[in-house]
Nucleic acid binder design. Sequence first.
RNA 1: GCUGCUGUGGCUCAGAGGUAGAGCACGUCCUUGGUAAGGACGAGGCCGCGGGUUCAAUUCCCGCCAGCAGCUCCA
Length: 638
Amino acid sequence: MADTIQVTLPDGKVISPPKGINLGELAKSIAISLGKKAIGAVVDGEVKDLHSGLEKDAKVKFVTEADPEALDIVRHSSAHLLAQAVKRLWPEARFGVGPVIENGFYYDMEIPKQLEPEDLEKIEAEMKAASGADFPLKRATMARTAALQWAEERKDPYKRELISDLPADATISFYTQGEFTDLCTGPHVPSTGRLKHFKLLSIAGAYWRGDEKRPMLQRIYGTAFLDAKALEAHLKAIEEAAKRDHRKLGKDLGYFMFHPLAPASPFFLPKGAFLYNALVSYLRGLYAEFGYQEVVTPQIFSSELFKISGHYDNYKENMYFTEIEEREFGVKPMNCPAHALMFGARGRSYRELPLRFADFGRLHRYERSGVVAGLTRVRTFAQDDGHIFMGEEQIGEEIENCFALQQRIYKDLGLSAPTILVGTRPEKSVGSDDLWQRAESTLLAQLERLGQTYKVNPGDGAFYGPKIDFQVRDAIGRMWQLSTFQLDFNMGLRFDLHYNAKDGTQKRPVVVHRAMLGSLERFIGVYLEHVAGNLPLWLAPVQAKVLTVMEDVVPHARGVVAQLAAAGFRVELDDRSDKISAKIRDGALEKVPYLLVIGARERDSGAVAVRERGGGDQGAVPFAQMLERLQREVAERR
RNA sequence: GCUGCUGUGGCUCAGAGGUAGAGCACGUCCUUGGUAAGGACGAGGCCGCGGGUUCAAUUCCCGCCAGCAGCUCCA
């Protein structure tokens, strides 16, 4: 019995199948039903498909549709099904890679025909046919030379490149389904009949291996699920996401607009400008509390400044320049150089440190035309920017102070805890290895000390120093970078900044660049999506609308509006000669937090009939009580 | 920047080689109605911009601009 192995199942049971048994047979041997349901298996923590053989003792857990791993397997196999369908329709097609992504899969390919949306239907139909044929997916391995020859025969330079890039000792495996074979490590479903609930979503261009110097392939995005219901739900979720797209909300609610004569540059309409300014004044309140001093700095500087700061060498392609009196000037893309000038304008004492400058200055950055989008990627924006000048020994405390401020803001705004990413030295950068080394280790030490969990993104730092980026997942599930803390040992050096230390020596200040909301523009975009346009009372441009039931009560309603306005609330009156239901509908579509209905009854009793956003009629509430409720809610920032 | 798609009244969108339509919004009038659309009438369009083809272009072709989905790049 030397040729059996010990297999431990999830329930702790140990069985002894023959060595080399493939997982599909093993599943069947445990239970016929398991043999039918199994899609793959997790062997010692690694996902395998049912064709894999077992050569040694292992822990095996079969993956059925109930397991989370199943979805990835189905999606990966769906990508193969897509490729098979494309190959049937366009035999000349050459294939790049076809991985699983967060909500589905894609496949990059070179096809002589430029794909159009209608082609997706044709491809889908072909995929259904291949699924109906229920081809088993057979795994085979090939020696490197045979594999390369395979790619050669198919005249597929992409697969060839993929094969030659595989490590010398790699097992090169292929999967065959019917007439179609693809290079792949797997795992896959046992047969194409398992793939029924898929949908092709879009066509896009994608550079081969993400390199813009290499050919652009056509990429087809799709998604697949284990059952029709889940697919339906996902497609529905995509639709719902589109409804809370900030570009749509911004337009519908009259918050901001764009114009072709200022591409990628938002115009904040009165209501949007209110929100913008409300955020700024909220931050100003916190700045007083957290020891910041706000400054106002120029927009345009001689290029000399950017040569000193390093932007001229490292950031020039993102800057706007102009020439006047034969001197070159640059529009600032960041506030830091201006703050450095202010710090250095006179002698500084250690007693002033940490010196915290805050600046809501407008920044301009040239962004390539294809990358701009709504408010989340624009060419002009303001940050809730700040630079902290300090002694090296103050870094820890200051980073901690930054975290405290950030947590306060996120709490007030109802944002969830962000994902933390540490960016280290990029290729294009200023400063010595030693400075970078020190800056990076200081940041990491702080994160450790504060017990924050984080991931490191090598090479993702700013050109002047390493950074901590904070990403927030919005309600739709996309990640956005908002806050950023950046450590800078270089600015002091470049601008030759110094201060008189306690011991009488001249010392170099260290600088922290930090933004809490990041760019106000991006923040507003993300936040609008986060709340689906339902701004909390304290930020809503219109907090309440008074709606009149009939003409007789209009004078009284005016009085109510005046009282609310006198109490500092932003109120509108809807006294149109429309039915109350129509006014309610309009107010609801405007996402106004409170609709206050006034008819004869309310007038006579000094009340308002309250309707809270998203809810129904709450009945009459005495006016004084309502006023108090509004005041409380604003104070609590609900 | 690259690939593809799109561009028609304020908004959402039809339409066709013979210079335009719907719904909503808007205005006026009627209606004063109690919790998500009352009625009638009316006004409003360089059919993104510039070339070309054609007797005729908003429609077909080319270029540009802008937007959208991605790629690449970033708050």
